[in-house]
Simulated scan of single mutants.
Amino acid sequence: MKKILLAMSGGVDSSVAALLLQKQGFSVLGAYMRLKSDYAEGERAARLVAEKLGIKFYPLNISQKFKQDVMDYFVDSYKDGITPNPCVRCNKLIKFGELLRVKEDMGADYLATGHYVQIKKDNKEINLCRAVDRNKDQSYFLYNLTQDQLKQIIFPLGGYTKYEIKKIAEKNNLPNIKTESQDVCFLLDEGKIVEHNEYLKNHIKANPGQIMTLDGKTIGKHQGLYFYTRGQRKGIEIGGTGPYYAASMDYAKNILYVVKDPDDPALFGNEFFINNTNWILNRIKFPVHCEVAIRYRHKAVACVVEPIDSGNYKVILKKPERAITPGQSAVFYAGDTVLGGGEICV
């Protein structure tokens, strides 16, 4: 019987994944990652599922690495003037980087997670593809996976809808945490959601500066450029006028430039560059015509990707897109297949 290490969170997805893997004939080992100090509820729920299904259960203390590689990166990125994607980094370094190592240490044959994504094999390579449930699809976050890693991974939920997974949990009376997980899991304090900017205020010193229109008129003050992302409306509080949208940030002069029209050309771009790239498929030939998603849940749009030098590429969009944001991930698709991705740098 093949052994498989399953990442368990205590939520409905990983709980049902454990059941499905058992039914497929795997000997399942459950691993709960202690990422933050408030792990007790999740670990308790995951342990209950393991006990119900007769699964060996292993809590893993990864909090220090999670803090260094994900939480500190999140804050440091804002200090550097970019908008980070902590979930992409966590999947690369923690959920797969660490758990694949643990899989080897435990002598398991495969690693499984509760991600909504599919693996499809052809005669040449392994393809990472969108999930059947498009609303829950998480392929955007997994573009850093490699062919060698995909050989070792199983995604049991990719062919199901969230509704079907909940029904399976109910039918089998699986214990699980009822609340949905947060997009940024560490923006929680004792179970309560911490507002994004409040979290940053606690980790980055305020640095007030001027808010100006593109024609140079000063119309207000900001408390720190790290609060703003291109295209953002929330938080630009200028009494008596507005609304305003963040168009650009001048970090050298500490000026936030804004526009009033949400469709102002200053908010749009038709090309950008990416670095820190990973291409899942070796058969890609450049320049490649494909589609790109420039943020999670963004509708993928037509583009051409051209290489510049090692690891750096230029992306040319068929039509201008709004709020192309440095630090976010650009993920490339051919139909439902993930080609790869990288970090937007301009």
Rank of each mutant, 00 (worst) to 15 (best):
G42A: 04
K299P: 15
L48G: 07
E343Y: 13
T213N: 04
L142I: 12
T277M: 05
D263Q: 14
K136V: 06
G209D: 04
D263V: 12
G54P: 07
Y73M: 07
K192R: 14
A252E: 13
A334E: 15
I211K: 01
F96K: 03
I177Y: 01
I55S: 00
D80K: 15
W279R: 00
N172F: 15
H203L: 02
R101F: 14
E98Q: 14
S181Q: 11
T337G: 04
F186L: 03
L281I: 10
L214I: 15
E43F: 07
Y143F: 15
A50K: 02
R295M: 07
V117I: 10
D13R: 00
D69C: 14
P156W: 07
E180C: 08
G42V: 06
E41C: 06
A50Y: 00
V75A: 06
D148R: 13
Y257I: 06
K167M: 03
K201I: 12
V331D: 00
R130Q: 13
A323T: 12
N270I: 11
N278C: 09
D109P: 12
C129A: 11
A7T: 12
G54V: 08
K151R: 15
L157Y: 02
V292K: 00
A17V: 07
I62G: 02
Y116R: 02
K192M: 10
V301E: 09
C303D: 05
A31P: 03
A247V: 08
Y226K: 04
C185N: 12
G11Y: 03
E271I: 05
V288C: 10
L187E: 07
L174G: 03
L339W: 03
R297T: 14
L111I: 10
L281Q: 09
Y116P: 04
I154Q: 01
I274H: 01
V315Y: 01
E170I: 10
G341L: 05
H115N: 13
L150E: 05
F155D: 01
D137W: 01
R44H: 14
Q223P: 12
V49A: 04
L267G: 00
S15A: 15
A131P: 08
N312Y: 15
